[in-house]
């Protein structure tokens, strides 16, 4: 087995709060193999974005990594200094953010911004070569008439085109790792389909690995090889994509899938998970999901003992004391039609 592109082990992040530190990422471990796409799914506040900010060394000043480690191609990067990280970011490790309007500089031409990303990491390259590379990159992500459009400003680009420009910038230095944080959430479905297609195409061409962070289970289902489902700062389940949808083993994953409205199942009430996600300042003891769980609600073990992410075979991992029981019950909980290609 080759060295994973990215590896986190027991990563924990805390934010400073008025009543003491709040742990928003709690012992998160995963690996990303070369060429692999890992989906990181969870609802708002589940810690998925903070996990990746920690990986990139971009945590806000109020947050810090309190334990665990992050390795990029085998090297520790959580302890690396800022200079080393700067060399990495935008070079071997690039990020695509959700909102291309706020992540592009409104007063600089699109071409200038992409050129900057190239020049920073390849100081020897001449201006002409950089300009040619910018046009090549814009063409690669499907921006029509790339030469003219590289001289335009972000406001002259539509939302979908801006996100393409962001992708061009991210792949400028052929990164080994792409981190995409809700890359299409702000876009309409028809534009989302275009952008995902471009992203997948350039990713395949450069051979990058990718972590795709999203709340949209449909989106990861079509892109990722493996999916990690996060809840309350922890990974609840991590498994190959097919298995997540066909044999989910964590009650939270099962609940999420059941509450997804489908074009096929209509008429009945949607299954829903009772209650709300917990306040991170008062995370329930034991399993954080147990107060909302149909299995764990009344079981003392769930309230008292935190389940570890344990292997179930076939590369599937779930953090549930009763994963086998949940898995067996899932067949009846999720509407039919799951996993059938149309």
């Amino acid at each position: 087995m080759s060295v994973p592109v990215l590896e986190t082990r027991d990563l924990a992040v805390e934010f400073a709060g008025p009543e003491g530190p709040v742990r928003v990422v709690d012992k998160v471990s995963f690996t990303l193999d070369p060429g692999e796409v890992l989906g990181l799914v969870g609802e708002s506040g589940s810690g998925k974005s903070v996990t990746l900010l920690a990986v990139m060394g971009l945590l806000p000043p109020t947050a810090r990594i309190v334990s665990g480690e992050v390795r990029f191609l085998g090297q520790r990067i959580d302890t690396a200094d800022e200079t080393a990280l700067q060399r990495l970011r935008g070079g071997d490790m690039a990020m695509i953010f959700q909102d291309p309007m706020t992540s592009l500089n409104p007063v600089l031409r699109i071409g200038t911004q992409i050129a900057e990303a190239i020049a920073l990491h390849r100081p020897g390259l001449g201006r002409r070569a950089i300009a040619a590379r910018v046009v090549e990159l814009l063409g690669m992500v499907g921006v029509p008439d790339p030469e003219a459009r590289s001289r335009q400003f972000p406001h002259e680009f539509s939302g979908g085109m801006r996100q393409r420009a962001m992708i061009a910038m991210a792949i400028a230095n052929e990164p080994k790792l792409l981190i995409a944080d809700e890359p299409t959430t702000a876009l309409d479905v028809t534009i989302q389909a275009q952008v995902m297609e471009v992203l997948e195409e350039v990713r395949a061409r450069t051979g990058s690995s990718m972590v795709l962070v999203t709340h949209d289970l449909g989106l990861v289902a079509e892109t990722a090889q493996r999916i990690a489902v996060m809840y309350a700062g922890r990974i609840a389940e991590l498994a190959p994509t097919e298995a997540i949808f066909e044999r989910p083993a964590h009650p939270y994953t099962i609940g999420l899938l059941a509450s997804l409205p489908s074009l096929d199942a209509t008429g009945e009430m949607l299954a829903s998970i009772p209650g709300q996600p917990p306040d991170m300042r008062q995370r329930p003891p034991g399993c954080a999901f147990h107060p909302r769980c149909h299995l764990g609600r009344d079981r003392t073990r769930c309230a008292g003992e935190r389940p570890v992410l344990a292997a179930l075979g076939d590369g599937r991992l779930a953090a549930c004391h009763y994963a086998r029981e949940a898995e067996a019950g899932a067949a009846t909980a999720i509407p039919s039609g799951v996993g059938v290609a149309g």
Binding site: A221, L257, S262, V338
Partner: peptide, 24 residues
């Protein structure tokens, strides 16, 4: 047809979809 085809749906993975060209 394009809207329905483009909408990601975990229950219909692995299908081909219609991707519209261009913007509004």
């Amino acid at each position: 047809q394009a809207l329905l085809s483009a909408a990601p749906d975990p229950r219909r993975r692995g299908r081909r979809r219609i991707v519209l060209a261009g913007d509004l």
